[in-house]
């Protein structure tokens, strides 16, 4: 068993109920092949760095799961078939994962992450363009990696000056 992460970008216009349908569809797909979902994160609608399928925005969904390599092939086939999926990326996080460890210990975490998402996209659409990205990120930050909060805020400061000079 291996641990994978799939980020999928969905059409931003589809309603929340349908998003729920998609997550269920992919969850059942993973489970029927003997894998296990660790967590599902909904990052809400974000502005894309470049247009995808002529759209400037996309709804991001992160699937964190354990499964066999053959599962990825099937999952990606499904992503391609599903028209609402604009783009996807699957990454192997770890080799040789023990499935039992996740099914027992990480279950409460997975259920805690799910009820949260619907709130985030609502806020995002209400705010103005530059704020949008930040508000979505801010809402997802605390649960993912609280320790890196400080480091991120000073990141642009250090880089800005020496690099510009260097390019010249």
């Amino acid at each position: 068993m291996r641990r994978y992460e799939s980020v999928i970008i969905l059409d931003p216009e589809i309603p929340d109920e349908e998003i729920q349908g998609f997550t269920e569809k992919f969850t059942s797909l993973i489970k029927t092949s003997g894998g296990e979902i660790i967590k599902i994160e909904d990052w809400g609608a974000k502005k894309l760095a470049y247009p995808v399928k002529k759209r400037d925005r996309g709804r991001y969904l992160l699937l964190d799961f354990v499964g066999l390599p053959a599962l990825i092939a099937e999952l990606e086939r499904q992503f391609k078939i599903t028209e609402e999926v604009m783009k996807f990326l699957s990454v192997k996080v770890a080799d040789e994962v023990d499935l039992g460890a996740f099914t027992a210990a990480e279950k409460p975490e997975a259920s805690a992450a799910e009820p949260e998402p619907p709130a985030a996209p609502e806020q995002a659409t209400a705010a103005s363009a530059p704020e949008k990205l930040e508000s979505v990120q801010a809402s997802s930050e605390p649960e993912s990696q609280p320790t890196t909060g400080d480091a991120r805020s000073d990141a642009p400061l250090i880089s800005a000056e020496p690099m510009e000079h260097g390019i010249e």
Partner: peptide
């Protein structure tokens, strides 16, 4: 220098410091 600074493809805020 800063072990709390972890790079992750899901964190564009960190990565942005390293692109022009």
């Amino acid at each position: 220098a800063d072990s709390s600074l972890r790079m992750d493809y899901k964190e564009p805020a960190i990565l942005r410091a390293f692109i022009t």
